[in-house]
Computed example of a mutant assay.
Amino acid sequence: MSLISSTEDLTALCDRLSRERYVTVDTEFMREKTYWPKLCLIQVGGEQESACIDPLAPGLSLEPLFTLMDDERVLKVFHAARQDLEIFLHESGRLPRPLFDTQVAAMVCGYGDSVGYETLVSSLTRARIDKSMRFTDWSRRPLNARQVEYALGDVIHLRAVFEKLEAQLASSGRAGWLDQEMAILTDPAQYRVEPEEAWLRIKARSRSGRFLGLLKELAAWRERTAQERDLPRNRVIRDEGLLEIAASAPTSTDALAQLRSVSRGLADGPLGQGMLEAVARALALPDSALPRPPHREDLPQGLGPVVDLLRVLLKMKCEESGVAQKLVATIGDLERIAADDAAEVPALEGWRRELFGADALRLKHGHLAIALTRDGQGLRVIPLEDSER
Rank of each mutant, 00 (worst) to 15 (best):
P37A: 11
T11R: 15
G265V: 02
R380F: 08
H79Q: 00
N144K: 15
V77F: 02
I156W: 00
D130C: 13
I156H: 02
A267T: 09
G366P: 07
Q43R: 09
F78N: 00
P383F: 12
L3V: 09
G304A: 12
Q48S: 11
D179P: 02
E223S: 07
Q301V: 05
A220P: 00
S2F: 01
R126H: 14
L276F: 10
R336C: 07
D254W: 10
R362C: 08
H365F: 13
S18F: 04
P98E: 10
A145N: 13
Q168A: 15
L242F: 04
D333F: 07
T7W: 09
V148L: 08
V262D: 05
P300C: 07
D137S: 09
E319Y: 11
D287R: 15
A347P: 04
E47N: 11
C14P: 04
D375V: 04
Y22V: 07
D137R: 12
D15P: 06
H157R: 10
D137G: 08
S132F: 12
S50P: 08
D230F: 08
G213P: 00
Q227L: 03
T11V: 07
L185F: 12
Y111F: 15
P346M: 13
L152F: 01
L256D: 00
A347H: 03
A329V: 00
P293L: 00
E8Q: 11
H367V: 12
N234C: 08
V25N: 06
Q147C: 07
E91K: 02
A170I: 11
S208E: 15
L334E: 01
L309R: 14
A246C: 09
R201A: 11
E354L: 11
Y111R: 07
S321M: 05
Q377K: 15
R235V: 00
R238T: 09
L334N: 00
L313W: 02
A360M: 07
P188Q: 11
A338D: 03
V74H: 06
D239S: 05
S171D: 14
E47C: 10
Q190C: 14
L372E: 12
L212N: 06
K317F: 04
H295R: 14
I245Y: 07
P37M: 09
G357A: 09
L231R: 12
F162K: 10
I129C: 10
R260T: 14
D341H: 06
R174G: 01
G110E: 05
V77Y: 03
A280F: 13
P96E: 13
V148H: 03
L17Q: 04
E320S: 03
I42W: 01
P286M: 00
P98M: 09
F135T: 05
Q325M: 11
E63P: 01
W36G: 04
A160M: 08
G357T: 02
E197Q: 15
V148F: 07
W177R: 04
Q258R: 15
A51Q: 04
Q180Y: 08
L242S: 02
Y35N: 06
T225K: 07
D154C: 12
R140P: 04
G378W: 06
E223W: 02
A57Q: 12
A145Q: 15
T24L: 04
R235H: 12
L89F: 09
L259M: 08
D179A: 14
R146G: 11
V104L: 14
